[in-house]
């Protein structure tokens, strides 16, 4: 079985552990073994070390990458921010020997050395390019036929493409997540704000009102243009924003609709017939109804 080092980050294990559970349960069904990276820390998040000092950022990121290097595996992470931070750090270290030497001096305080032997992938990249849509399709017990998905790939999965091993043909018109949803039988009509930001992260912590307006624009574009049955994302930050801030917008009377939200592997898990109480159990925007519809007898594949 091919192995990948599972870099969890912060939001997935602490705020959305049902996403973590969906990784642990779906990947083995696709022939991939999930290897824990014991002792991993925060990537570190954009608002911390990267906003203060480049070498401190690279030391913390490379420490995390060395955990995979010692297990002799490549990294996969399901958090877009972590992916962006780690991929950019790796790109800088691998293209600037002087910088790498400076960072390794810092790392030596933690008795570690970065070599560059492990690659950094996003969960979506592993699913799309390493496993492939055929295997994903073959692992499904339930089909999403005639269900409409609004896809939300998330920013750090798309830009800057120069630091990524796996790239979209045109990151401003991304297709990977659409293809992953098609593999489960769903439709993914285009909507005009598909590639726009959800407002989570730095924007939300700096000015919640502007962040909510950014989300509202995007939600209304989805609702008015394609009226989706669900929103599907491959970014844990987008997941939290679409799920929890959607409820905030409803509570404030800013929107009058509710669209269930899934991280892609949660949806995959449901299609594989896995237990929703483990893989899709924590949300602010209700999704019980759509889960029952997905795992209904009529949708069973032979």
């Amino acid at each position: 079985m091919e192995q990948f080092g599972m870099y969890l980050g912060c939001n997935i294990p602490f705020n959305a552990p049902d996403i973590e559970q969906s990784f642990r349960q779906t990947f083995p069904n696709l022939g991939v073994e999930v290897v824990d990276l014991q002792g991993a820390t925060c990537c570190p998040a954009w608002g911390t070390a990267p906003s203060f000092d480049i070498n401190t950022w690279l030391a913390i990121s490379s420490r995390n990458i060395t955990l995979a290097e010692s297990e002799q595996v490549d990294i996969m992470t399901g958090c877009n921010s972590c992916f962006g931070i780690l991929a950019e750090a790796k790109h800088m270290l691998d293209h600037d020997p002087g910088r790498k030497a400076q960072v390794n001096r810092l790392l030596s305080k933690a008795d570690r050395k970065y070599s560059g032997s492990s690659e950094v992938y996003h969960v979506a990249h592993v699913l799309h390019n390493k496993i492939g849509v055929e295997k994903i399709n073959a692992s499904a017990k339930y089909t999403l036929r005639q269900l409409k998905v609004a896809v939300q790939p998330g920013c750090h999965l798309l830009w800057p493409s120069a630091v990524m091993k796996v790239k979209e043909k045109n990151p401003f018109f991304p297709t990977m997540l659409k293809e992953l949803c098609h593999a489960l039988g769903a439709e993914t009509p285009h909507y005009s704000r598909l590639e726009s930001c959800c407002g989570m992260g730095a924007m939300r912590s700096t000015n919640q009102e502007r962040a909510l307006d950014t989300l509202k624009d995007k939600l209304k574009s989805m609702k008015e243009e394609i009226d989706p049955d669900m929103i599907v994302t491959t970014c844990s930050s987008c997941y939290l924003q679409f799920d929890n801030a959607q409820k905030l917008l409803r509570d404030k009377g800013e929107i009058d609709f509710a669209i269930p939200v899934f991280y892609y592997t949660q949806l995959l898990a449901l299609c594989q017939g896995l237990d929703p109480a483990q893989v899709a159990a924590i949300s602010e925007t209700p999704r019980d109804e759509i889960i029952v519809r997905i795992q209904s007898k009529q949708r069973l594949l032979n």
């Binding site: 954009w46 608002g47 990267p50 906003s51 962006g84 920013c155 750090h156 798309l158 830009w159 800057p160 493409s161 990151p171 401003f172 930001c197 989570m200 992260g201 730095a202 924007m203 912590s205 700096t206 000015n207 502007r210």
Partner: peptide, 16 residues
């Protein structure tokens, strides 16, 4: 001006 701390580091700018 703290608005620079709202930058998401999304890198659309760097791409384009």
């Amino acid at each position: 001006d703290s608005s620079t701390w709202a930058c998401q580091a999304c890198n659309r700018c760097t791409e384009i």
